[in-house]
Design a binder for these strands. Sequence first.
DNA 1: ATGGTCCCTTCCGCTCAGCGGAAGAAGGGG
DNA 2: CCCCTTCTTCCGCTGAGCGGAAGGGACCAT
Lengths: 249, 249
Amino acid sequence: MGAARSRVERAFAVLDAFTPERPSLRLSEIARRAGLPLTTTHRLLAELCALGAVERDRDGTYRVGLRLWEIASLAPRGVPLREAALPFLEDLYEVTHENVQLGVREGQDVVYIERIAGRRAVGVLTRVGGRFPLHASGIGLVLLAHAPDRVQREVLEGPLQRFTDYTITDPALLERVLAQVRRDGVAVSDRQVTDDALSVAAPITGARGEVIAALSIVAKAGDTVAARLAPAVRAAARGTSRALSARRA
Amino acid sequence: MGAARSRVERAFAVLDAFTPERPSLRLSEIARRAGLPLTTTHRLLAELCALGAVERDRDGTYRVGLRLWEIASLAPRGVPLREAALPFLEDLYEVTHENVQLGVREGQDVVYIERIAGRRAVGVLTRVGGRFPLHASGIGLVLLAHAPDRVQREVLEGPLQRFTDYTITDPALLERVLAQVRRDGVAVSDRQVTDDALSVAAPITGARGEVIAALSIVAKAGDTVAARLAPAVRAAARGTSRALSARRA
DNA sequence: ATGGTCCCTTCCGCTCAGCGGAAGAAGGGG
DNA sequence: CCCCTTCTTCCGCTGAGCGGAAGGGACCAT
């Protein structure tokens, strides 16, 4: 275990121990997950608690602290992006009452920044703050289609994970789909993530015209759904793009 | 400057250099703000970048990285609380098209977790991820009224900052208002934050009945606004409370 | 062209912040 | 009582991290 990890790296190993399934952990669990000795972990947790980055419950368990979220809310690709997009996401939601999502690319994954989910909307597999492979979802396809060549190549080299019978796992097919996404300005993921859901996604561009995020609607799959939703999705993405460009001017 | 700060503390001093006004900073600015030598700062930034906690732009400036937000989205008092409350906040927004907010108490401040703002809604001073003193806003009054005695005492000992002519800065008056908030189950902040806005807030309780958050509507001040909005605010808070309790069962 | 200012990057001798095993305490269950 | 798990504290040791110094680059004014 003496893998010559720096102090900051160890602190983040501790923070990485928390998951959506296990947001609350005991000292020894954190030590085990982080691969650190008990005393090192104990000391780090004491320090992170003093800083508010970790909070300790009355029952002795630790969880991620609000102070960390306060700092993180300044990440330009997180909360500020969400705030710019929110009016447009809201409009999209009001018009459709379907799931509306916003995501950015990080490596070969989508990171979901926002989701507005109606009570009767179709279930989605994704979580705000969570990740998902680029090649399957609507948002992911848009982000991949506009990603640097290097990233596209890496993803196409695979493996392309299968989620349903419809998931694209053939690199040649995926490449053709990406070209189409770039032509169409919109991506459709039809039952490629879950058997019952279809998503339509469009790119959000920054001040220099580069694609920096994407937004989508996720609805119950059906024959005319994509064609029906695409114009609204495009409009919301364009609105968001305009708002972001105006911000930098 | 040799204030015997630990490595993790210094890393957080670096992260604390970023503000909403200055989300993008140069190395030397960060060093100055963090009160650290250039080389220490440089090394820390390199490490934080490698971890994704900080990102470096093409132009050489640094900003908070998305990885930090991913981790922080697991803070139970942040994104998960927001997700539980969101359907109710959405309903409240759809019914009123006014500003809807969600906040939690951290020390003597509200930390704003969520805000849904319509395009025509009255302006608010608060920011998602930002803080505000407890004694002035609707949310703050609710959280203060139900805070531990120690916290209430500390706030009442002042100073109670003034935002408008209507802000309560007299401890005796504030104490009476807090008692009323506890009786009424709702707080009204009438032009106490900005001259034109009134907010109505209600408490959100956790599984053990303790107040853990509050939500509010912020609208343009007027004669019957509070009475008109209070039932809906109460209902949204109760709904959220129920959702949170069901979660723990 | 030169000089000045600001910013950034790298180097290196030094030292103390942080390490982790060991010991012991606490809690729960049989 | 014993056993197991979890947590907290201690302390000798050492290498991770320190920060001043050196140097390079970019920009601006003369």
